[in-house]
Structure formats: structure tokens, C-alpha cells
Simulated scan of single mutants.
Amino acid sequence: MKYLIRVLLSLVLLLSLLPIDFTHATPSTVQQDTYISDSLSLPPTIVSPGSLQSNAQSSSTFYANGYRSGDELLFDWRYNRPGAKITRVEVTATIQYKKNAFDQNWTNIKTISFEYPGGQGSFAENQVEYHPTKEGTYRVKLTGLFRTTTGGESAGCVSNTVNYF
């Protein structure tokens, strides 16, 4: 039994002396995670023209897809509400950053607002462009209010992550 304890203590001591640096992870060792933010995973809320506070649910979708094109990160987003005529789009896009996969929190680095009349169709789409200055993992968090001829709807989503190494 004493021998087993000595071996285990020796292994713990050996491992504690090894220099392990997780700050220089390469893209092959960083696992890409795609998930919806905890506060934005609820379905969109339909709002009436007068109150903007109804809790009825709709069949709309709001999503974003991020990717890298050269030294630029692009996040395409699209909101779709079948049967509706969108009259106004108000979207806030927050670009978020993590140095590496071991970081627990996202850091907000830039916010971009989109406000314009809707095209009277059942969807709205646009693109967020960003030129990163440092290596890391990026995503975009979107919140929006989409007004229609019959009311409006607030919605939110988070894009997939994009690595910039």
C-alpha cells in the first residue's frame, strides 16, 4: 500500500512540474462549439401594434451563420416569418470574442445596429462584417424587433463560432 501511495505522489509531483501552456492552442486542438445563448434560446414573441407585449408564439425563424473569408469574418443573418409583411427592421449585432476554447466568458468587442424599412416581404436578411485584430474565436449575438403590417415580433439568436488563428 505504501508503494502505491509513493507512486501516486511521484506522478502528481511529476505532472505539477511539467510546463503546460493552454494559451497557444492551435485550431486543430480547439473544439468549435455551436450553441444558442441561454438568454436567447426562447422562441420569438409576437407583439401587437399597440402594446408590443403579447406572449403568443409564432412560426418565425431567426438565425445567423458565420464564416471566414480571407482576413475578414462574415456573419450572414436571416429572419423569416411566413405570411407576414415586414415593414421595419431593427437589429443589434454584438460581435463577441474568446481568446481560446478554455475561456469561460465571451467578451463584447463591437456593436452594430441595423435600422431600416422592411421590404414588405416575409423575410429580412443582412450581413455583419468584421476585420479581427487578434487571434481567437468569434461569434455574433443578434437581437431584433421586426415590425409587420399586423404588429411585430422580437427575436434573438447567436451564430456559430468562427476561429481566427
Rank of each mutant, 00 (worst) to 15 (best):
N126W: 00
T87E: 10
F102T: 13
K99C: 07
Y79G: 07
A101W: 10
N108K: 13
Y116M: 09
G119V: 06
Q104F: 11
D103L: 07
D71P: 08
I86L: 10
E135H: 12
D76K: 06
G83W: 01
W77I: 03
E72R: 08
P82C: 10
H131M: 14
G136W: 02
R78A: 12
Y97L: 03
K99D: 13
F123M: 08
N65I: 09
T133Q: 14
T92I: 08
S69R: 10
T133W: 08
R68S: 03
D76M: 05
G118V: 00
V128K: 01
F75P: 00
S122M: 13
Y97C: 03
D76C: 06
E129R: 14
T87C: 09
G119Q: 12
Q127H: 03
A124E: 02
T137G: 09
S113Y: 04
K99M: 13
P117S: 06
E115F: 09
Q104C: 11
E115K: 13
H131F: 11
G121F: 07
E90I: 07
R88E: 11
N126I: 01
D76T: 05
G70L: 02
A124Q: 03
F75L: 02
K110C: 03
D103M: 09
N65P: 05
A64Y: 00
E72M: 09
N100E: 05
D76E: 13
S113I: 05
K85Q: 14
V91E: 12
R139C: 01
N80R: 11
F114S: 11
R139S: 01
K99Y: 09
V91P: 05
N108S: 15
G70P: 03
Y138N: 11
R81F: 14
A93K: 02
T94C: 06
K134S: 12
A93Y: 00
E135N: 15
P117V: 00
Y97G: 02
K99A: 13
Y138A: 09
R78Y: 04
E135L: 13
N126K: 06
Y130G: 07
Y97V: 02
T107W: 05
G66L: 04
F75A: 01
F114T: 11
Q120G: 08
T107C: 07
T107A: 15
T107K: 14
G70S: 07
R68G: 00
K85V: 04
P132A: 05
R88F: 07
V89W: 01
R68P: 04
Q96W: 01
G136S: 04
K98G: 04
L74I: 01
L73Y: 01
K98Q: 12
Q127L: 11
L74S: 08
W106P: 03
T87L: 10
V89N: 05
F102C: 14
G136R: 00
A84R: 06
Q96R: 10
